[in-house]
Amino acid sequence: MSGFKDVSHLFRFAGLFVIAFLVFLVVRVYVVPKSFGEYGHYRAAAIGEIAAHPIKFAGHQACESCHSDIADTKAKGAHAHVNCEACHGALATHANDPSSMTPVKPDTLVLCARCHTASAAKPKGFPQVNPADHMGGVPCQTCHNPHSPAIGSDTGKGAAAGGTK
């Protein structure tokens, strides 16, 4: 029995590990979400929670159902595959009730430069300019129609002003 007595303190230290491990397991039961691991290494309930978020984007079909003139102009130009809300922002609220809010027109000096500022990493065929040299502070829509940007297609303020309500 005295043989055990001389090693009993080691068992006490080992007991600390056992207690720590048990505490870990108990805490784990409480802090790991119930749906964790149901489908994969994530919380399955997150899918429902994310799906419940209000929809913010209306989709280009919704825009085109009212602004058909703009849609026609856009379909013929280089921006045919750029979605409306890529430039105008998420507008589900406006699409659901047009009178509830009026979308703010983007500042073309900022918006156009975001894609068309020259950079070595962009493909050679992609239209790109040095904004300071190219327009010197004059808004892009003075010369380009943002919905169909090739010069001569349909330029000027009227073209960029938007379509019918």
């Binding site: 001389d6 303190h9 080691l10 006490r12």
Partner: peptide, 14 residues
């Protein structure tokens, strides 16, 4: 001490 005051020679050797 974790409640153990055993510092016998044998325990210290262990």
């Amino acid at each position: 001490t974790l409640g153990s005051n055993n510092i016998s020679e044998r325990s210290l050797r262990i």
